[in-house]
Amino acid sequence: MSGRGGRSETRWAAAILAGFAVLALVPLAAPRDDVLNFLLVILLSITLAESWNIVAGYAGQVNLGHAAFFGIGALVARTLWIDGTPIAAATAAGALLATLSALVIGVAAFRLRGAYFAIGTLALGEISRTTVGNVLAEISTLPTATISTYRLTHRYYVALGLAAVSVAVVAALARSRLGLGMEAVREDEEAAEASGVGALRLKLTALALSAALAGLAGGLFAYYHISYYPSHPFSPHWTFDAVLMTFIGGVGTLHGPVLGAVLYVVLKEYLAVRWVDFHLLIFGALFVAIVLVLPGGLVQAAARLRGAWRR
């Protein structure tokens, strides 16, 4: 896990946001549903990956229950929205509840270290999924009135805005004292604690930020899909996707998760035509290779190649 200083992160943030500005023109230039849907999935994945990256890359904690925050955001936003709350307020409420639950879960789960935190959060995520699946077994479908006014472009711009916010948040975090403190905790928790860094407070802040972004992404999911099972956004595969994209791109960097998300979705779409889950086979193998030989992901590989080129 490589923590670069704030300066290069800011430059990357500027480049990525400039790319997003270009994407804002797509609905005008090519207003095709398949293009917009494809880009929307990429943008949603970027948000999800960046949100997971805050806890894993900066605070060094592998959270395998991330889907719970995404799910809570989706559940609250969908319920309130269908009841008549404006979607913006409903999404905000969802993100707020996701953040609050992160604080509650965090106080308990951060008693666990390393791999135990990972399996503990995995279990918590599964508890939330099973419970939601049991209580709300019925499929959730939008009212016909809402469907008749459904505009994909609206969803697209929300996704674009969210991805931009998540990139900006991580960029700001990387430059801040808060981010530095998190990196100190990641490198050596005891040493950080000894030098006066409040490790628990920092880890909780990271988890809350991460949950807030995941909750917003859940709100987008609720806004985007016409019908789905309420337990679906709680499914562990949302967590696993975020883990894969972040690690393969480069955990603890700003642009790694963006790169990972683009690659992941493109490969998935490309392979889905012939092989259902083949992209997971490739990504699973790639992930293992990266953990073993290239812990910095593709970002690190690129840096090494550049270094070799200059020499």
Binding site: V62, R113, G114, A115, A118, I119, F240, V243, L244, F247, W275, V276, D277, F278, H279, L280, L281, F283, G284, A285, L286, F287, V288, V291, L292
Partner: peptide, 24 residues
């Protein structure tokens, strides 16, 4: 500690790959 954490990550990737393989 590093061993447990890295093995968890390797197992995680292996799990995804084996699952996808079994579906195929």
């Amino acid at each position: 500690e590093t061993r447990i954490k890295n093995s968890l990550l390797i197992g995680f990737g292996l799990a995804l790959a084996l699952h996808a393989l079994a579906v195929q």
